[in-house]
């Protein structure tokens, strides 16, 4: 394997129209076809922004939260936009969060976390990255687990004494978990 070219060789190769094969800035562990720009991020640099949580629980942090604690967090941080009863406040831009089961196949579907969202992990993930709207990213992991637990409890999905953490949250079964299908388009098949 060619590990490194001398400068004249590279120059000649480029002149000859050969596709770009460059000298790696990283030296011996670089592949020949690698440009090697950029640096290796530290674990801390990655961890700082690697905030996503996946349906199977990957990415969920340590810690846990309770419905009772979540009720407090919700009242303080969320109710102003989402309403005391999670009903949503149009003027504030806050979505309705619960209710709507059984409406998805009607003419007036009500899409909420309770009726529509297929994964509980998405609640944690979204609250962590974007909520509360006026102070995004300000909640602690414990507060996020708690407010997630509170919403799921108010949605009649988990019991009042259930604790949410990296173990329990991925096991929560959302009412609409089987509600999604792949995109079959083109679904109107007019061809010529």
């Amino acid at each position: 394997m060619l590990k490194k070219r001398s400068t004249p060789q590279v120059f000649l190769a480029l002149l000859a129209g050969v596709s770009i094969v460059a000298v790696s800035a990283l030296g011996n562990d670089a592949r020949a076809d690698e440009l090697g720009f950029g640096t290796t991020p530290t674990k801390e640099e990655i961890a700082k922004i690697d905030i996503d949580a996946m349906p199977d629980g990957r990415g969920l942090p340590e810690g846990s939260g309770t419905v009772a604690k979540g009720k407090e967090v919700f009242a303080e941080k969320c109710a102003a936009c989402h309403g005391e009863n999670l009903e949503g406040i149009k003027e504030a831009g806050g979505d309705k969060l619960i209710g709507g089961r059984g409406t998805l196949n009607t003419a007036k579907p009500v899409k909420t976390i309770e009726s529509y969202w297929p994964y509980a992990s998405t609640v944690f993930d979204y609250v962590k990255r974007a909520m509360p709207f006026n102070e995004p990213g300000s909640l602690t992991d414990e507060e996020i687990y708690s407010v997630t637990a509170y919403i799921l409890n108010r949605a009649n999905i988990i019991k009042e004494d259930e604790v949410m953490n990296a173990e329990t949250l991925p096991k929560v079964e959302m009412p609409n978990k089987d509600g999604f299908i792949p995109d079959p388009r083109p679904d109107v098949r007019h061809y010529r």
Partner: peptide
């Protein structure tokens, strides 16, 4: 796997 973020589910 896909991450199932809010924008691609709800």
């Amino acid at each position: 796997k896909p991450f199932m973020t809010r924008e691609e589910t709800s």
